[in-house]
Amino acid sequence: MKVFARLSAGAAVAAAVAAGLIGTAASSARTTRSSKKSSASSFTLGVVADTGGLNDHGFNHLAYVGELAAHAKLGVKYQVLVSTSSADYVPYLTKEAENGDKLVVAVGFDFTDALGQVAKEFPKTHFAIIDTPAQTIPGKPKNVEGLIFKSQQSGYLVGYLSGLVSKAKGYKTVSTVGGQDIPSVTAYIAGFQAGARAADPKIKLLNAFSNNFADQAPCETLADNQIAQGSKIVFQVAGGCGLGALQAAKQHGVYGIGVDADQGYLGSYILTSALKRVNNAVFQATQDLLHGKFTGGGNLVYDVNNNGTGYGRLNAVAKPYAKQLQKLLAEIKAGKINVPTTMLVK
């Protein structure tokens, strides 16, 4: 009943706003965004979000944050379109390209085929796509660069932390809830599992895929099951769906680990978050292009060394291990640890 959920959500928003009408009245007229350096540049950065929307607490949100940063610091104009279905991918990319955008960022592998079609038609426009190697775009267009992340590193760091916490507290099991069995998800989980075992070789690992990135319910159910099987730390890698997994962790009094963005704001039960700094990538790609650098047909790889991956804020339980984590981070940076991308336990 997604449509009803959607529609009733719409109605709820309308009602909430109506309530606001009585409360704060018309004084809430939002100050219009003033673009500081708009005269400085005719460069436009366009972002096309996938169906997760900008409020996904994840990579769509981060892409938008990066875009705003580029707008603020680099003075570029910006536009963002939010897809409501896969039918929007081609027209929205087209719309951005036609609008004279110098760089159009497609957020997520879902855009693979659509981008192949559009990039071919607009050879003068630059495109970038998150989480997808440029070589996998149909036609291998030269005006597309892939922005890819070694998210297994982030997974390894938070996995290691989970292992340390488990060992100290006597936890036997930690678990992961993935959105789908796809590389951008499994890399995280593979890193997590390797990290956890590195810290606590006897730790039991559970994993489940929700096949969903939007609806919280399936992830919550999966996490419930894992917690019932003894999991004390739940790492979500399922975008908006995964928030349900964290919710389950909260309800059962166990720990959760956020993903992509720093989700520590959800509460003190969030041990930490495995970061994928899409915002940095979007900003970086824009800056590079402004400086005449564009990796057409190739990829920009983000990892611990260029601050693309890492871990977020630590809660009280995790704080004592901050030093160990710093050390681990340095080791990964130095290439002393090679983090696998294949999951130990599916």
Binding site: R6, L7, S8, A9, G10, A11, V13, A14, G53, L54, N55, Y64, V80, V82, T84
Partner: peptide, 13 residues
């Protein structure tokens, strides 16, 4: 832009 898609939902709703 974070709110714009909700507008469609509000009208549909």
């Amino acid at each position: 832009p974070e709110l714009a898609p909700q507008l469609t939902l509000i009208i549909e709703g």
